[in-house]
Structure formats: C-alpha cells, structure tokens
Simulated scan of single mutants.
Amino acid sequence: MCHTDLHYREGAVNDDFPFLLGHEAAGIVAAVGDGVTDLVPGDYVVLAWRAPCGQCRSCRRGRPWYCFDSRNATRPMTLLDGTPLTPALGIGAFAEKTLVAAGQAIKVDPSARPEAAGLIGCGVMAGYGAAVHTGAVGSGDTVAVIGCGGVGNAAVAGASIAGARRVIAVDVDERKLDGATRFGATHTVNSRRTDPVEAVRELTGGHGADVVIDAVGRPETFRQGFYMRDLAGTLVQVGVPEPGMTIELPLIDVFSRGGALKSSWYGDCLPSRDFPVLIDRYLSGRLDLGGFVTETLALDDVEAAFAKMRDGQVLRSVVVL
C-alpha cells in the first residue's frame, strides 16, 4: 500500500471512479495474450507502472525512462455488472488477478520474497532512483533526504549504496529518523526541534549538501531543500505535491546558487534494467527491502491500514492474497 493509493481513494489524482487500487505488486503470470513472446505462464514478475513504448520522441532519442506514451492494458477490467474500473497507475493490484500490458511485467529472480519484491514496483524504485539516477549521487558526496517514509528511506539506501560519504536524514518524527539509520543514514535531523537548513550546513562543514532529495513534496520542504544545498548542488523533488501547491523563490538566489533543480519521475528508472538489479541487491543483502515491510495483511484489512498510513505508523503495509 502506497500513499498514491490513498491519493486515488480520496480523489486527489482524478475523478475517474471507480478505482481499482494497488500498484506495488509481485506475482505469477497466469496467462499471456497473442503476440507475447517474452513471458509465459508461471513467470515470477514485479509490475511496473511505466512500460516504455519504444516509439515516442523520448524513446527514439534513447531516453526510455522518460517515455511519454507508456503502455497499459488496452482492455479495461470491469466490475461484475460490466462497469469499467480505473486501475491505479495502470496496474490495480488489490485483486486476485489484474490485467497489464506485457511490458509492465518484469521478470525477476523467483527466490525473492514477494512481500518485499513488490515494493520496488513504485516507492522503493522512486526513492532509490531519485538518488542514484536523478541526483547522480557519487562516491564521497554529501546527501540530505527530507522525509523518511518509504520513498525517503529508499533514497537514503540508494545514496548509501552509491557511496555517499554522509547521508543526513531529515524528518519531524523521531521514530522515522531512528528507522532511517537502518537504511544507511549516517546522521539525523529532527526538523521539529531545529532549523534543518542550519543543521545540515553544520554537518557538512558549513557548505550544505551536494545532493538534497525532497521526498515530501511540499512548498516548505522544497524551500528547505533549495537552501540546504551547497553551491552548485542538486535538489531532487520526488515527493508528489498536491495540485494547488505553489513555490516562490527569489530569482537572484536561483541564479546565484547555481546547480540544478530536478523532479524525479519514478526515479528516472528503466524497469526492465533496474528491477532485476534491485532484486539482486536485495538477495545479496545490500538492499534491505524486508525492512520496508511493516506488516502484512488481508485485503479486507486495507481500510485499517490506510488509517495507519495517515498517522505515519508504517513504511509499507503489504496485502497478501
């Protein structure tokens, strides 16, 4: 269960009700359609909500991770009365079976525990990729991550694996900060108790971080991240803002501080390339996917899990069918 499912549920994405929620999933292929040659029934897969088309202007320029016409199933799933369902992010995994385009089903090592493997389908990939791909964290870099939920902790893990010298976790919740150390945070900052910009500067020799990742997606965290950077540093926004949110910054500061302000779409990932890599890192013990699984539950318990999500009690509640 991901915060995006909650956004769908509460109408914050669009109003194409009824929705079939769920978009972080691992499972077994039950059947394939005509013309599918790279999947067979019985394959163990993780589902992706981006499946590059190979034909759009981005794909043709060799940037399939930005595909502007991602593939989804062409036939809609329906309720028993024939009412079409809108699957969350083109997946709709809160069901015993779902229907996706073949390119959305990425084969991975079947020895990976499915409760953990499914998480790379969205939140873990988004955070990890925000650090490794969008932010291009390198050996010796200093990194600050604002927001230590599932996406933020995946960014912490990605920065650590990429060789960051210092990974600073920033949050208002001491429990989440304690958890961030499990994924590789070397320092923590409680932004409820101290100015996070000044705290990060103190931890980086007075300069600021080379890369800052905003995993919250609010104007105040974006502003903090902007000023938390070193000169010529990079700010990556991977947290999803609400549609009405705006940001205002002095243009002279944008110019004089240099660097880059980037948004990260799905961690700028290529699922066919990156999902198997993350699974291999999980199986080798380098990426603690199991640490993101707070609880497992049945489909009937989803509403109670949404309440825990709102209260910040969980990283991920995982539905097991």
Rank of each mutant, 00 (worst) to 15 (best):
T186D: 08
A185G: 08
A307N: 11
I91F: 07
G129P: 06
W265Y: 15
L47T: 13
A116L: 04
R175I: 12
G206F: 01
K97V: 13
G127H: 06
A95G: 10
F306G: 09
E24Y: 05
L89D: 00
A117T: 05
L119I: 10
L321P: 15
R193N: 12
L80N: 13
F94S: 00
G206C: 02
G62N: 11
R9K: 15
R192S: 14
A48V: 07
L299T: 08
V236A: 10
W65E: 15
G140I: 10
I28L: 10
A116K: 02
G90H: 04
E202C: 01
A131R: 03
A93Q: 03
R192I: 00
G184P: 04
G206P: 02
N72F: 15
A157C: 11
A51C: 09
W265C: 10
V197S: 03
M228H: 12
F222N: 04
F222E: 05
E295M: 13
L297A: 12
I168F: 07
F68E: 15
A102Y: 06
V319W: 03
R182P: 06
D214Q: 04
G127E: 02
G205S: 07
P110C: 09
I279Q: 03
G82A: 11
D81S: 11
T234P: 08
M228P: 10
G82V: 11
